[in-house]
Design a protein around this nucleic acid. Structure first.
Length: 275
DNA sequence: CCTATAGCCTGACGGC
DNA sequence: TGCCGTCAGGCTATAG
């Protein structure tokens, strides 16, 4: 699931459930790959996470693109950094019977509840971060797709003069942080732009449509808590499957690979690039 | 600068 | 039923 709207939904979930409770213990279940590179049963990452979290509490949350940050009580600006890869999520629960499958890291609070970081495929990441700003800079993440600072001028500046296909730029977290395969397709569909269009071939009104639809789509998805089943019928995402049909014109949707990712689009509503 | 590929990890699905 | 290939809403490293 985890693109910007999914991560934002989980951020709000954590915010609503898990702040201001002392963390009694942190446990790991075949989470090695999620924690970083150091091998072995007494990995440095485990030692640091336990040391940094136990006895403290979650104070505040933030998000940049697909990364969630949870600031910790105590001195310094330390935060827990969570990335959810392809299959990650969170679950807050009390009874052991409600413990989710594939919980890789579990935070036990002194009030008897637990927060599980879930990841079936282990493609995400769990990190103790000293300084979130520096972390974002080091990863060279682009601006968050919904940040206030990203006004239309800034958005246009990110894309202009790039000869790359627009969908590839949308997927590149160093250009713009937060979009993934599904929402990139949705925004391009809503804007009526073919995924293989080169960015420097986009007209001014195309860029305007992309900027506007990017906000519409992401905000709508967040409103619906990133549940595709609750999306408007006019959304590509609802029809994004084998034999899917364009909700606007009824044409059969087509699939192409862009950046090695499957892209769905409507061959009549999203015009092929002229080049 | 741009594109394509492989690999990380696990499960679901379709075909034989 | 069992086995096999392919694919999946992410990201990185590498090669051309």
């Amino acid at each position: 699931m985890p693109e910007l709207p999914d991560v934002e939904t989980m951020r709000r979930y954590l915010e609503a459930t898990s702040l201001q409770q002392e963390i009694e213990a942190v446990t790991f279940h075949s989470a090695g790959y999620l924690l970083g590179d150091d091998p072995g049963p007494h990995r440095e990452a485990v030692r640091r996470l336990k040391g940094g979290l136990e006895g403290r509490s979650f104070e505040d949350t933030g998000r940049h693109g697909k990364w969630m940050f949870v600031w910790l009580s105590g001195d310094g600006h330390q935060a827990l950094g969570l990335h959810f890869g392809m299959t990650g999520g969170l679950k807050y629960f009390r009874d052991t019977a409600d413990e989710p499958a594939y919980g890789r890291v579990r935070f036990d609070f002194t009030n008897g509840y637990h927060l599980a970081y879930i990841s079936m495929r282990k493609l995400g990441a769990v990190r103790l971060i000293e300084d979130v700003e520096r972390f974002i800079n080091r990863k060279e993440l682009g601006p968050d797709a919904l940040s206030k600072a990203l006004d239309f001028e800034a958005f246009r500046h990110l894309l202009e003069d790039r000869r790359t296909m627009i969908k590839a730029l949308f997927l590149d977290q160093q250009v713009l942080a937060g979009l993934g395969n599904v929402y990139a397709d949705e925004i391009l569909y809503q804007a009526g732009i073919h995924p293989r269009t080169k960015a420097d071939e986009l007209e001014g009104h195309d860029l305007g449509a992309l900027y506007e639809k990017m906000h519409d789509v992401l905000e709508t998805a967040i409103d619906r808590q990133a549940q595709p089943g609750d999306f408007p019928e006019s959304y590509l995402t609802v029809h994004r499957h084998e034999d899917g049909v364009c909700p606007r014109c009824g044409a059969e949707l087509e699939r192409v690979k862009v950046s090695s990712r499957t892209s769905y689009y409507c061959p009549t509503c999203q015009e092929r690039p002229t080049g």
